[in-house]
Simulated scan of single mutants.
Amino acid sequence: MSRQRIIAFLAALAAVIGLAILVPMASTASAATCASPWSSSAVYTGGMAASYNSHNWSAKWWTQGETPGVADVWADQGGCGGSSGGTGGTTGGTGSCSYPAWAAGHAYVTGDIVRYTDGNYYIAEHDNPGYDPTISTWYWDPYSCTGGTTGGGSGGTTPPGNGSFVVSEAQFNQMFPSRNSFYTYNGLTAALSAYPGFATTGSDTVKKQEAAAFLANVSHETGGLVYIVEQNTANYPHYCDTSQSYGCPAGQSAYYGRGPIQLSWNFNYKAAGDALGIDLLHNPNLVQTDPAVAWKTGLWYWDTQSGPGTMTPHNAMVNGAGFGETIRSINGSIECNGGNPAQVQSRVNAYQSFTSILGVPAGSNLSC
């Protein structure tokens, strides 16, 4: 074989070997690249992508603050690896931060900095036993990798200020002309930071409808924001479920209805307190002495509890199920399906009045 033919043969062989090596390498890189990490403060519309817990997710419709894998607004697009170059992520977030991942139940002290599951960083403002940084804003603040808190920047939960709430103070006073002075407008707006998706989700009409729906149910529960505590004192001893391992440390009769949503039972005080980073199990009176805490417990139920219904009141309003489903989630087992039509109508009347004050239609599916 001539020298030229040997060189050509070797070149061809090298090309074949190189191709054989390249093909398997390409097949092992088939994992999808992760989209930009999901952020609890970001707004997503239908079709937008975000990554969370090493999966890509696609928004089915408008959403903000609803966690992929928990809220059904997100469609799982499968596992992913690597980064699309977006900010945050589970591998380090923005800038040069390198802090440990937050762990639920782990004790933190003031000054500790953690990386949350949304890829953003938070600094402990007060000692806490591992409260969720995106919910317990008393204990945590968003933290910038360049140092210092972000004040609710791109990675944090930006709390609406008084001027951004869809209900003005004048409208609030119009809704509740005889309210107890305990139920302050400032207390309500201060509580909004606990659940930043409340009355900020969807179109301007939907935002106002949700605010009206919440306030209408609150009005019904409290006689127009008149009552702070449950009036039937004979019920007080009944709200202690002794089957719970933690019992009723504040006393057998300590967990009666309080606040705008009339929070009751020891297990609800514990659950609300755990979510908000406040020890309500041992200090239930905070709900009747601190206006912001009182409003936060109402928002806790509204945004996270489905009660006797099939969805949270928040989801009922932002996903178009209608005001009637909020009644079902709050007291449906007693009032809905003909249980107490007069009570249902009372709630509907308040809702229609409040939507009128806010200048939006009441929508459909008003009753349950």
Score class of each variant (00 low, 15 high):
Gly47Glu: 04
Ser2Leu: 08
Thr310Ser: 15
Asn128Ser: 09
Ser181Phe: 00
Ser264Gly: 07
Tyr236His: 11
Gly105His: 06
Asp279Arg: 02
Leu299Ile: 08
Gln174Arg: 06
Arg5Asn: 12
Gly69Arg: 13
Asp274Met: 01
Thr110Asn: 10
Ile261Ala: 09
Gly153Ser: 13
Thr91Cys: 14
Glu66Val: 07
Tyr143Arg: 10
Met317Asn: 06
Tyr239Lys: 07
Ala212Thr: 00
Gly148His: 07
Ser164Ala: 14
Pro142Met: 11
Leu263Pro: 00
Ser84Ile: 04
Ala15Arg: 03
Leu299His: 03
Val318Asp: 04
Asn186Phe: 01
Leu10Gly: 09
Phe198Cys: 04
Gly85Pro: 10
Ser54Gly: 02
Ala213Gly: 08
Ala254Gly: 10
Ser39His: 02
Leu19Glu: 00
Ser96Tyr: 12
Val206Thr: 15
Cys145Gly: 15
Thr91Phe: 14
Thr289Val: 11
Val43Lys: 09
Asp241Pro: 03
Ser83Arg: 05
Trp62Leu: 12
Thr205Glu: 13
Lys60Val: 07
Asn235Ala: 14
Ala14Asp: 03
Ala250Ser: 14
Asp290Leu: 10
Asn120Met: 10
Ala316Cys: 08
Ile261Gly: 03
Asn173Cys: 05
Gly338Met: 11
Thr200Leu: 09
Gly251His: 09
Ile327Trp: 04
Thr33Phe: 01
Gly320Trp: 03
Thr33Met: 07
Ala14Asn: 02
Gly18Leu: 14
Pro196Gln: 12
Asn365Pro: 00
Gly224Glu: 04
Trp61Phe: 12
Phe9Met: 13
Asp132Cys: 05
Ser219Cys: 14
Ser329Trp: 07
Ser353Met: 04
Gly155His: 05
Asp274Ala: 07
